[in-house]
Design a protein around this nucleic acid. Structure first.
Lengths: 191, 191
DNA sequence: GCGGATATATACAATTTAGTATATACGTAT
DNA sequence: ATACGTATATACTAAATTGTATATATCCGC
């Protein structure tokens, strides 16, 4: 039943990432997915609904993948913060990496009232919150501050990689993150 | 003569930033600019040409503004690197700030062969080169590395501000930059 | 004041867009 | 086998897209 639904989601996600959301018509999506518009609108109320679901699935997949990897490969909470950028780098350098969906989506829908933009902003907030908990568990002096800085580094590096594949930005972001993390853990007593 | 041309450029720039490039039709542009399509196509060969010119003008204005401010308000080259984020913050917190044009444009045109994407990538590269020279003049240990890190911080913070106005990301990016800059200047002998 | 070039406005063409109404094939229960 | 409900395919609508052909106003030298 829902195999076509999954297929549509997958194809739409791929096309949105490679061609842009607004530049991808529903006709193209159904053609590539090997189905018809009638079926698409059976499963999704509108194109906007499809966009929102694609974003949600993408974000869920990413956060699940990341936290699973962090939990599997580390023992102490403090390790997780150190390993974070290793997995980000692994994710970015994977051959099927196409960018961070909510970053692109927010650029295509700049109006803050727009549902797609709102979801993007919410996902960005959730990701930052995830980093706050990571920083807090690791014993950072100011978890909010460190988490926001790390999120800026991650999103900035991914942005750079979206503009030019193979820019190596993540490697430099990783070095910067190491310095910031050490700085936040070392100077517990200071300030 | 060219007052209408300037007007079209200005209006297009504003609409592209507030509504997105692909979501803004030429009809809307000429309506807001108070002219007609015939005039627009007199001055610009195609919509893509208009987009490219808007991007070029935006980038030129930004870099001119930034380097002028840096030159005026600093004496020693090492000061410039410190003041950099002050001006970035001033730029971002200005009420008419609408985001960094080439970041959004590259998201709307993800295909690396696309002329708009290529120009965006080129502008990103130029900005990074500008930072490299700044870092070199300031006597950074590894100017390329520091410049790339700073560009990641700047573009990441701006990205955060595009998703959510008033996120205060630049303030945190500034703190991070300070740490990275100090680190790069202090440890001249190391490594 | 008049003729000619230039800029502007109106109207249009061809495609593409999201979304839908209708018709047809198909699988299942009896 | 047959009747029924569901999924799919075709065809269509209405609006919006970029770009252009034609008509009209405006401004200049003389």
């Amino acid at each position: 039943m829902s195999v076509l639904r999954e297929k549509i989601l997958h194809v739409a996600s791929d096309l949105f990432q490679t061609r842009g959301i607004n530049s991808t018509g529903v006709d193209t999506i159904v053609a590539v997915a090997g189905t018809t518009k009638m079926t698409l609108y059976k499963y999704f109320r509108s194109k906007e609904d499809l966009i929102l679901e694609v974003l949600q699935k993408g974000h869920a997949d990413f956060t699940t993948w990341l936290s699973n990897n962090l939990n599997k490969n580390t023992k102490k909470p403090s390790e997780r913060l150190q390993k974070l950028f290793d997995f980000i780098e692994e994710w970015v350098t994977a051959p099927d990496f196409r960018g961070m969906a909510f970053l692109k989506a927010s650029a295509e829908f700049p109006n803050e009232e727009n549902p797609v933009h709102r979801l993007s902003a919410e996902q960005s907030r959730q990701f930052r919150q995830f980093l706050v908990e990571l920083a807090a568990d690791a014993g950072a002096r100011d978890p909010d501050s460190l988490a926001l800085q790390l999120s800026i580094l991650i999103e900035g590096a991914i942005q750079a990689e979206q503009i030019k594949r193979g820019s190596g930005a993540v490697k430099y972001a990783k070095k910067a993150a190491k310095i910031l993390i050490e700085n936040s853990l070392e100077t517990q007593a200071a300030a």
